[in-house]
């Protein structure tokens, strides 16, 4: 019944630093369940993040954890995976971290199709620094630096990942906890770059400014805006207005994985 999360969490680290209702905690639980399902040996698992509220996640987990600099998680993780391909490598981080300052590393890690699982917590905002707009803040929304409404168009992270060459791309939300671990498990099992975008909530810096009275409103929004790929297939364009798709959005099992490609380079160099 009750899930034993504690065995995966470093002693004395709870309560965590996230605000009441912050979705990052829900994602962390999903990640723990997924790592358990995949029976990942934590000694052989690197969890790498950048900077941001979401990026504080690795510090709680009992594994080889690497909290790097803002935006650079995918690049650090690439070094870890290249140097020790036998390690399981998981990246976690926020929308700002992964797609603004770290956007270049993100797309190139996707392009290489290096075997890692990247759980990107998209709360539509720079939470840690107090709610400035991110590349994922919806146009028109309010942020501390868009006092007249956000003039910027957004990134669709999942589309970006597919376009850049990731071979497993999935999306879910913090309001769909069972799907979080289900998709992360698939991502871990997938040999190649797996992106799992989890739309979550930042009640403190985004919700407050944007019509949401409470975190409950934000969670309800996630439930109503999310439409599974299956359900969407039976819906009209009109019905899909204002919704986003969840589930496995893309998978390609043909594209070679990067460390396997490099193992071939080694064979060639050694004249085998």
């Amino acid at each position: 019944m009750a899930y034993d999360y504690e065995k995966s969490i470093r002693p004395g680290k709870l309560p965590h630093i996230w605000c009441p209702g912050c979705g990052h905690g829900i994602v962390m639980k999903g990640l723990i369940r997924a790592m358990d399902t995949c029976e990942l040996d934590r000694k052989n698992t690197a969890i790498v993040s950048g900077i941001g509220c979401a990026s504080r996640l690795p510090g709680y987990l009992d594994a080889c954890t690497l909290h790097t600099a803002h935006g650079r998680a995918a690049a650090f993780a690439t070094g870890v995976k290249m140097a020790k391909p036998q390690m399981n490598v998981i990246c976690v981080g926020g929308d700002g971290d992964g797609t603004a300052i770290g956007g270049n590393h993100f797309i190139h890690a996707c392009r290489r199709n290096i075997d890692m699982t990247y759980v990107l917590m998209n709360n539509y905002i720079y939470g840690m620094t107090g709610g400035q707009f991110s590349p994922c803040t919806p146009t028109g929304d309010l942020a501390s630096t868009t006092p007249y409404g956000n003039p910027d168009p957004i990134f669709d992270i999942s589309k970006l990942a597919i376009g850049a060459g990731a071979t497993f791309v999935a999306r879910t939300t913090a309001a769909h906890p069972r799907e979080i671990d289900k998709l992360i498990v698939k991502g871990i099992q997938h040999k190649g770059m797996a992106i799992i975008e989890v739309i979550d909530d930042c009640p403190t810096t985004y919700g407050r400014r944007n019509k949401f009275r409470s975190v409950i409103d934000m969670m309800k929004r996630l439930k109503t805006e999310a439409v599974s790929v299956k359900a969407a297939a039976k819906m009209t364009a009109e019905q899909l207005e204002g919704k986003f798709l969840t589930g496995v959005l893309f998978q390609d099992t043909e594209k070679p994985e990067y460390t396997v490609q490099y193992a071939n380079v080694i064979k060639k160099a050694q004249g085998a």
């Binding site: 790498v48 080889c64 690497l66 790097t68 600099a69 650079r72 690049a75 650090f76 993780a77 690439t78 070094g79 870890v80 995976k81 290249m82 140097a83 020790k84 390690m87 270049n104 590393h105 190139h108 490099y262 380079v265 080694i266 060639k268 160099a269 050694q270």
Partner: peptide, 29 residues
């Protein structure tokens, strides 16, 4: 490097290069 089982990677920029070096070093390389 590949001749001695080492790894060479050309990253997307120098920041990424530095990051990859630190990541690799943490694995003992």
């Amino acid at each position: 490097l590949p001749k001695v089982g080492g790894k060479f990677i050309q990253m997307e920029d120098e920041i990424a290069a530095m990051a990859s070096v630190i990541g690799a070093s943490l694995t003992g390389a």
